[in-house]
C-alpha cells in the first residue's frame, strides 16, 4: 500500500526539530540552575529559627517553614540538587553496566548471551525495593549503599534494548558488506555501530534519571538512604509524615510536587533528546 503520510512537507519538520532543541536547552538550563542553586544554599540558609516555626506558605516563605523554622523552599531546592547529583552518578554507572552487559551479550559466544539474560531475569526477579534495601543494609546504609544499589539495579532495561539494537545492526546488509570488504572490526564498530548506538546510550542515560531519582527518594523515605541531616526530598517527606496530622500540609505537598516536576522534566528531556538524536526509535 502507498504510504502517503511519509512525504511530510519539509518545512514544519525543521521547525519542530528546532522547537524540540530549544525546549531541551531550556530544560537543561533549569536542571543546571537547580543544581547550582543547591550548591550555593549553605547550611546557614536553612538554619533553625524558632521565631518562624510552622508558618504556612506566604510571600516571604512560598513553601512555608517547618517545625524548626527552616524555609521549605530552600530545603526543597537543596534536596532537588542532591537528587540530581545522586541521579547523575547512579544513572551514569547504570548506563556503563548496561553497555558492558549488552556488548558482552551481543558480541560474546552464545552461552554468554544466555548468562546475561539469566542475570537480567535474576535482577528483575527480586522486588526492586527489596533488593535496594538489601544492598543498603549490606553497605551499612548511607550514601555509598544508596548509589551502589541504584547503580546495580537499573541497567537491565537499557541493556536489553542495546543488545537488541546491536544484534539488529550486526545483521544489517551494509555492516556485512563492510566486513566482506575487509574493514577491520574496529573500523566497523567506529563507522557503523557507534553512530547508531551513542545516541541510544545518551537517551537511555537521561531516561534512567527519573527512575534513579524516584528510587533514591523512596529509599531515603524508608530511612535507608542519605543521613537525616541531608535535606534530600525523601527525608524531608519522611520527616513531614509526623506533622501531617497536625495540619502542616505544606511540608509534604510542595517538596513532593517539586520532585514530581523534576521527574517529569527529566522524562521530557529524555524524550526530546530521543526525537532529536534517534528519531527512528521515537514513537511520535
Amino acid at each position: 500500500m502507498d504510504r502517503p503520510l511519509a512525504f511530510d512537507p519539509p518545512l514544519p519538520r525543521q521547525n519542530r526539530r528546532l522547537r524540540t532543541a530549544v525546549g531541551c536547552g531550556i530544560l537543561l538550563a533549569i536542571v543546571a540552575a537547580i543544581f547550582v542553586a543547591g550548591l550555593f544554599i549553605g547550611n546557614a540558609a536553612v538554619a533553625a529559627d524558632f521565631a518562624q516555626k510552622g508558618l504556612p506558605p506566604s510571600w516571604q516563605h512560598p513553601f512555608g517553614t517547618d517545625w524548626l523554622g527552616r524555609d521549605m523552599l530552600l530545603r526543597t531546592v537543596k534536596g532537588l540538587s542532591v537528587s540530581i547529583t545522586v541521579g547523575a552518578v547512579a544513572a551514569l554507572a547504570s548506563a556503563v553496566i548496561a553497555i558492558v552487559m549488552a556488548a558482552l551479550a551481543a558480541a560474546g559466544p552464545r552461552w554468554l548471551g544466555g548468562a546475561v539474560n539469566w542475570l537480567i531475569d535474576l535482577a528483575m526477579g527480586v522486588p526492586h525495593l527489596v533488593l535496594l534495601i538489601l544492598i543498603a543494609f549490606a553497605c551499612g546504609r548511607g550514601m555509598g549503599g544508596l548509589l551502589l544499589g541504584i547503580a546495580v539495579t537499573h541497567w537491565m532495561n537499557l541493556a536489553r534494548l542495546l543488545r537488541a539494537e546491536m544484534l539488529q545492526l550486526r545483521g544489517q546488509p551494509y555492516v556485512m558488506v563492510s566486513r566482506r570488504l575487509g574493514h577491520s572490526p574496529a573500523w566497523v564498530v567506529r563507522r557503523h555501530f557507534l553512530p547508531h548506538l551513542l545516541p541510544q546510550c545518551l537517551v537511555g542515560l537521561v531516561l534512567l534519571f527519573p527512575h534513579a531519582i524516584l528510587h533514591e527518594s523512596a529509599l531515603s523515605f524508608l530511612g535507608y538512604g542519605l543521613p537525616p541531616e541531608q535535606p534530600a526530598i525523601g527525608i524531608i517527606l519522611s520527616e513531614s509524615l509526623r506533622y501531617l496530622t497536625g495540619g502542616m500540609w505544606w511540608l509534604a505537598v510542595f517538596p513532593g510536587l517539586a520532585l514530581v516536576a523534576l521527574v517529569i522534566l527529566f522524562d521530557t528531556l529524555g524524550n526530546g533528546l530521543k526525537k532529536l538524536l534517534a528519531p527512528a526509535s521515537a514513537q511520535e
Binding site: D2, P4, F7, P9
Partner: peptide, 16 residues
Amino acid sequence: RFGRTRGRFAQGQLEA
C-alpha cells in the same frame, strides 16, 4: 489531499 488544512502550513498540502 494530505496535510494541514488549517494554520500557517496550509501551503504544505500534498495532492495524492
